[in-house]
Amino acid sequence: MPVPAVPPQARAPSFSAAEFRQGLSMFATGVTIVTARRADGQLVGLTANSFNSVSLHPPLVLWSLAQAASSMAALSAGSHYAINILASDQKALAEQFASRTADRWRGVAWREGVAGAPLLEGAAAVFECFNRSRYEEGDHVIFVGEVEHCAHRPGASPLLFHGGRFYTEHPL
């Protein structure tokens, strides 16, 4: 009787977590704030740069969140959220929503989206998403959202993040 084949597995990393993080920081990204409402109506928001498109048909996007994040329960249980792509003049907002401050929403201009998720005023683009699926991988959860509504501000320059710093776009 043949011995069952052992499925291939990745080798243990030959680098530290700090080296991995430094390497990842060389990939320039846009900056988003993911927003939602808890079941009790309380607003939830966090800065994320782990955003990407997945599919045009149906329109799908993804982003990821640390499993230990305080907003994980609300974002996993809720049916909708919004991904607000920040404009170049929204650096302070990115920092505010990345902080551990108790009230990230203080002084923030927003309006309610079609499904109730907060949409940030002045964002370069907004995607209102149905919380379609989630995948646990490593210490994060990958969220896939089905975009129900989207809008963008023509001519807006995006806020960029690279090497631990914020940037604005400059055409080559």
Rank of each mutant, 00 (worst) to 15 (best):
A156W: 00
I83H: 03
H80Q: 12
G107N: 01
A151W: 02
A109Q: 05
R165H: 09
C150G: 01
A10T: 11
F130L: 14
F161V: 00
S88A: 15
M26C: 08
E112N: 05
P158T: 07
A28Q: 02
Q9V: 12
S14N: 10
P7Q: 09
P158E: 11
V114W: 06
H149V: 12
Y167C: 02
L43V: 01
A124K: 11
V3H: 09
R153H: 04
H162W: 09
R165A: 09
S64V: 14
N49Y: 13
S16F: 06
E19R: 06
G116P: 06
G45S: 15
L75W: 12
A10P: 11
V61Q: 00
A74H: 03
R106A: 15
V141Y: 03
R153A: 05
I83L: 10
S14R: 09
P7W: 00
I85A: 02
R165C: 04
S99G: 07
E169V: 13
G138D: 05
F166D: 08
R165Q: 08
V144A: 08
R11C: 02
P171Q: 13
F27N: 02
L43C: 04
A28M: 04
T35M: 08
P58L: 14
A123L: 04
A117V: 03
R165Y: 03
R165V: 06
W63Q: 09
A36T: 12
G163W: 08
Y81T: 10
V54W: 02
A12Y: 07
V126I: 12
W110P: 03
A124T: 11
V44F: 00
P7G: 15
R106V: 13
F27R: 04
G30N: 06
A10V: 08
Q67A: 06
T35F: 00
A156Q: 02
S99N: 04
I142Q: 01
L24T: 03
P154I: 13
H162S: 07
A125R: 01
G145N: 02
V61I: 09
D40P: 02
S25N: 00
V147C: 02
P154L: 05
R11Y: 07
E95V: 15
A48P: 03
L43A: 01
Y81L: 06
Q90V: 04
G45K: 10
L65I: 09
A73Q: 08
R165M: 04
A102K: 15
S76I: 13
P13W: 06
K91M: 11
S25V: 00
A5Q: 10
N52T: 15
Q42C: 09
W63S: 04
H149S: 09
N52H: 14
R106T: 15
N84Q: 12
D89V: 09
Y167T: 05
V3W: 00
R134L: 10
A73G: 06
R100H: 13
V61Y: 00
A28F: 00
C129V: 12
A73M: 08
A94T: 12
F27I: 07
A115S: 07
A124D: 12
F27M: 11
F27K: 03
F51N: 03
E128F: 09
S55W: 14
A98R: 09
E19T: 07
V108E: 00
S14T: 13
D103F: 11
A68H: 08
